[in-house]
Design a protein around this nucleic acid. Structure first.
Length: 265
DNA sequence: ATGGTCGATATTCGA
């Protein structure tokens, strides 16, 4: 009898503000490992006691004041913690750790990229592409070991990862150059896009809805920006994929919902 | 074509 583990990825958009939502999520989904992005808290102020009190004794994190920030909270021990400078400006966008079964967990927050999808005109878009290229460069090495790569990639790579493929083709997150970079990145590591392994490509699937919509559910103009990828070692270990769209209706929600992989050991 | 709303922080910036 093998046993299974659950891993969640969530852009929480301020960990300190949304600790109560994190608690509700843990009670509902009982994840073993939680990867958070946009914690928006510097390391000295990380609410370690509160996260441990939820049952996640093993926490690693890299934050900065106001922006970005990533964390891995786990019920099982973590080792071999690494923090990569994926953009070249030391912003807190990556952290990884190994589980005691040898699986490496990488948690990544790709730059959003600003509004203009041209690297020559927009330094933020250039930075986004550089980040994806850096992860592409590392992909083959990463997937030599059993690895799970999760996070907010800020790219919706497939036609039905956005509410309108046509209308978003010139909107940062779904432009042809980002999609091309994203596919090259995935293929460089033979990463499997877990959500699309379980949900047909013809079906709309989102993980983010803008705060700016009057009624996010009625307009339903979502995008799938958050991802869970696994290396070939773990293809057969993937049991289920789930997301939590009802959490977008909770009080003071993040604009992203958590996504979860269940995998066997 | 524009603006719409958040969060952290400071009265703006990033998303």
């Amino acid at each position: 009898m093998t046993h299974s583990l659950r891993i969640i990825s969530w852009n929480i958009n301020s960990l300190r503000l949304r600790l109560p939502l994190l608690e509700r999520l843990t009670h509902e989904a009982r994840p073993d490992i939680i990867c958070l992005q946009e914690t928006k808290v510097e390391d000295a102020l990380f609410p370690l006691d509160a996260v441990r009190a939820l049952g996640y004794e093993h926490c690693v994190f890299r934050g900065q004041k106001s922006y970005h920030g990533v964390a891995i909270a786990s019920r099982i021990p973590l080792s071999n913690v690494e923090i990569w400078d994926v953009v070249g400006d030391a912003s807190a966008r990556h952290i990884s750790a190994a589980l005691d079964n040898g699986i490496h967990v990488h948690n990544l927050y790709v730059p959003a990229g600003g509004d203009i999808p041209d690297p020559a005109l927009n330094p933020k878009f250039a930075e986004k592409l550089r980040c994806v290229q850096e992860m592409t460069r590392r992909a083959a090495t990463m997937t030599q070991q059993p690895s799970i790569l999760v996070g907010d990639f800020n790219i919706a790579p497939l036609e039905h990862d956005v509410w309108s493929h046509k209308q978003l083709s010139d909107v940062v997150s779904h432009t042809p150059i980002e999609i091309e970079h994203c596919h090259a990145w995935r293929e460089a590591g033979a990463w499997r896009d877990v959500a699309r392994h379980f949900v047909p490509h013809t079906e709309k699937l989102y993980s983010w809805w803008s705060y700016r919509a009057r009624d996010w559910k009625a307009s339903n103009r979502g995008r799938r920006l958050d991802h869970i990828w696994v290396s070939p070692h773990l293809y057969d270990a993937c049991i289920a994929y789930e997301s939590f769209p009802h959490m977008r209706d909770w009080e003071q929600p993040s604009d992203h919902i958590p996504i979860m992989l269940t995998f066997s050991l």
